[in-house]
Every structure is written in structure tokens, then in C-alpha cells.
Simulated assay, not measured.
Amino acid sequence: MTSSAVGVEFPHRPTPHPTPAGQRDALLADPGFGRVFSDHVATATWSAGRGWHDAGVRASEPLSLHPAAAVLHYAQEIFEGLKAYRQPDGSVALFRPALNAARFTHSARRLALPPLPEEAFVDAVAALVRADAAWVPEPPASLYLRPFTVATEAFLGVRPAEEARFLVTASPAGPLFAGRDAGLTLWISDELSRAAPGGTGDAKCGGNYAAGLAAQAVARAHDCDQVLFLDAREHRWLEESGTMNVLLVTADGELVTPPLGTILDGVTRRSVLELAPDHGLTPVERAVSVDELRSGCADGSITEVFATGTAAVISPIVAFRAASGEFAVGAGTPGPHTLALRTDLLDIQFGRVPDPRGWRVPVGLDSPSSDIT
């Protein structure tokens, strides 16, 4: 089967050595997160002289890079994260992939990489899911998809690379925070920063995550699940967690989240803000100080806090720790709005409820549509 858009096609060349069905089923029974990978990748090559070419869905195998490849020396790379969900009728659907495609374009421009046409991005993801549909697990697990572009030109001068490669790999995935249903505790970092105005904070690139690893290590040293970053200028304003956006529920019915600019425009974040009115909440994007967070949790004006992300879905945050001390959110347990929003979102993604907004995108398997009427 071939998928095409704006001249970029992804014909499927099946691997001659697929994973045996019994072994695949055993892996799907307990995939963990990010440890198991499917049989194929979608891929395309770009060069300054030819544009995008040599695209297709092929056997997953190790990459061959020259030791001087630009990605290895100057971190010129970007990536995305989205999921494919098994539907009640056995079909498979993506969740708002056009938003990931648009963000991928934004990240490419910020990192001086060639943007892949957005329709081709969605086609590549769908083509890989069709090829490896047997790897899409049953709920509550899903198939995590990682599109990425790396600069492959071999050179040691500092300039945008003139060769790059786009790939999508797939990984059956269970919960990111397995065993943490009682909620997460975040370490508030008042020294190490994730991003600064004018930087790459709103692009999804590996450098942002590498820069956050030291802060995550500090968080773990304080027995916390993740880090909460503050702004780089004043170390006062909430930004995002190491891998997630952060949202707060207030006693007067607002769903508050820090504004965009230096943080990632999360697809789950955006979706939750759009779902908020259905849950009696008014979505608000504004600056939130760490002092407001602390005092609001103490006096009850902030009743719930949670994090959002493709991998994290909606994860309750029940406590914060910092050099200045620890404080709980509400009763120190996941809040009702958090749990209701999570259920609502997952029901949409897994096709258990109608989808009037058109967020589910069937990948074109030989099965009925995922929409419920």
C-alpha cells in the first residue's frame, strides 16, 4: 500500500524477518514504556539539491551515520510524539495528528531543518501504523509514535546541514508513570532552567530535554517524580515540567495554565483547554508565580494540579517539594476534575464515545470507522 501527499510517497517494503506472532504477543502483554519497538520505520531523505526523496516504510534497523554527521556535533534535530489507539471495532485511530505535523514544521524552522510537508507527515505516520497494525495493543496501552528529523551531512562547520533524514519509529506503550496512580510529586527547580525567551523552548528538540536531565536527577534525589521548571529570567514564574505541561484548577472554576512562548504547545494541553467548558471550567492562559502556587495550595484557592502530555496523558500532581519546603495540593490525592478530564480524553482517544470535534483520525485499515454514532 502506498501513501502519498505533495509528491512524497511511503510505499511499504515488508521486512523479511518479522517478529513471530507469539513473541510479539508476549511483548504486547507488558510493553512498559519506550522499551519495545515494532518491525518497521517510515523514512525519507532530504538534500539541498533534491528535496525530499527515497521515502518508504521499511524494516527497522540501526542507522548508519558518518562520525562527522551534524546531529552528533551540533544537535540539529527535532522530534514529535503521538499515539495510535485501538478502537472498540478493532480499527485504529490517531489523535489530532495535524497538530503534531504543524508543530513539527515549527520546530524544523527553529532548528534550521527542512520542513516535511505536513500532509506527508501525517501520511508517513499512518503508513507505518498500517504496516505494523498488529503491534497496536489493546487498551489501556497504545502504540507510541516517534517521528524525528536529524541532520546527517558530514561536516564540522557551523551552518545548517544540507542533508537530513526523517524517520518514524513505533513503540507499544503502557503508562509513563506506572504505579503512580496516587499522583506525582514535583521538585521545583529554582536554579536550573529549561528555556529562555528567544530560545528553543517552544520547539520540540532533543537539546531541550538534554538540558533538563540534570534537573530531573536533582528531582529524583529528592524523591520526586519529575521537575517543575521556572522561568530563566526571574526563577519566579511556572513554565512546564520536564516532559509535560502543567495546569491548575482553582476554587472559582478556572483551569489555568502558563502562556505559550517558552513552553511547548502541547497537543494534550490544547485538547484539555478545549474540553474544559464541558466540565464547568473556564480555560485561562496567564502567568502563574510559584508564590501563587504555594499560597493557593495553602488557602484552598488552588484545588487541583495536573500535568498533560502524549505520554503522560493527564497525570495528577499531589505535592511539590523545593529547597524552601514541601506542600500538598488539596487533600494530597487526585482531584475530581483531573480524573474526569482524563476519563473524557481517554474515552475520545480509544473511541468509546462520540467524537463531534473530529479529533480521531482513522488510519485506513480494512475495518469500519472508529466513530460511534
Rank of each mutant, 00 (worst) to 15 (best):
V329Q: 00
R321M: 01
H337G: 00
L247N: 07
A312E: 04
D344E: 15
I263C: 02
G351F: 04
G351L: 01
A340H: 12
T268S: 05
T243E: 05
V329G: 00
T343S: 14
L260H: 09
R270F: 10
V353I: 14
T310S: 13
A323G: 14
L293I: 13
G351V: 02
P283M: 06
P258D: 07
T343N: 10
M244P: 02
A311Y: 09
H279E: 06
L339W: 01
W359D: 05
V305A: 12
L341D: 03
T310A: 05
I302A: 01
V363I: 14
E292M: 06
T262I: 14
E292L: 01
P277G: 08
S324M: 09
V353R: 15
S271M: 05
Q349E: 13
A319N: 10
T250G: 10
A276H: 07
P316R: 03
R294T: 12
A328P: 02
R286L: 03
E292S: 09
T310M: 11
S315Y: 00
L275G: 10
A298T: 14
V267T: 15
G351N: 10
P316A: 11
L339T: 15
A322F: 09
L346I: 13
W359P: 03
E285Q: 15
V329F: 02
F306E: 08
R352L: 14
V329C: 00
A328Y: 04
R321A: 14
T282H: 12
S315V: 02
H337C: 13
R321W: 00
A298Y: 05
P259M: 02
A319E: 08
P277C: 05
G358Y: 01
R294Y: 00
R269P: 04
G335C: 10
A312R: 05
L247K: 09
F327A: 07
T343H: 11
E285F: 02
R360Q: 13
V313T: 13
V246N: 06
V272T: 08
C297V: 11
T257E: 06
V284Q: 02
L255H: 03
T243H: 01
L341V: 04
T308D: 11
V256D: 02
S295Y: 13
T243P: 01
F306Q: 00
D278P: 07
L247G: 00
T250K: 03
P356I: 12
D355R: 05
V272Y: 04
A287V: 13
G332Y: 05
L248V: 12
I302T: 06
G332C: 12
E274D: 15
G330K: 00
F306W: 03
F327P: 01
G300P: 09
E326K: 13
R360K: 12
G351K: 03
A328Q: 15
G364R: 09
D344M: 05
G296D: 01
L260Q: 08
L346Y: 12
T303R: 09
L281H: 01
V272W: 08
T243W: 08
L281T: 06
T310N: 10
P283A: 08
P258N: 04
R352W: 00
P334I: 03
V361G: 06
G330N: 04
L345F: 09
V246Q: 07
A312F: 07
L255R: 08
A287P: 01
D265W: 04
D355K: 13
D265H: 11
L345D: 04
T243R: 10
P362M: 06
L255P: 08
A312V: 12
I314S: 02
D299F: 11
P356K: 06
R360N: 14
L260V: 06
L275D: 02
D344A: 15
P356Q: 09
V267N: 11
